[in-house]
């Protein structure tokens, strides 16, 4: 997860985005789809394109990405 990789806590990210820290948790768990505005703000915070953080399809596990395994 990008947030953990960048060593940013939920509280810090939530404060920077102006949202409740639970909202960040729900987004990470896939229990809440953020608005386009919030998604773009999060992408800007991490200096990444929005599609690097959000996708219609689930992201592949990191081990698959690293070791090049194909999804079944």
């Amino acid at each position: 997860m990008v947030r953990a990789e960048r060593k940013v806590s939920r509280q810090d990210l939530a404060a920077a985005m102006g949202v409740h820290y639970q909202t960040i948790g729900y987004i990470e768990r896939g229990q809440y789809n953020p608005s386009l505005d919030l998604a773009l703000k999060i992408a800007k915070f991490f200096a990444l394109p929005v599609e690097a953080l959000f996708s219609l399809d689930p992201f592949r596990p990191l081990t698959d990405e690293v070791y090049g395994r194909k999804q079944p």
């Binding site: 997860m1 947030r3 953990a4 806590s9 939920r10 810090d12 820290y21 639970q22 948790g25 729900y26």
Partner: peptide, 10 residues
């Protein structure tokens, strides 16, 4: 509550 998963705080 979303679980603590990364040791970075809530």
């Amino acid at each position: 509550e979303p679980v603590e998963d990364d040791g970075l705080g809530a």
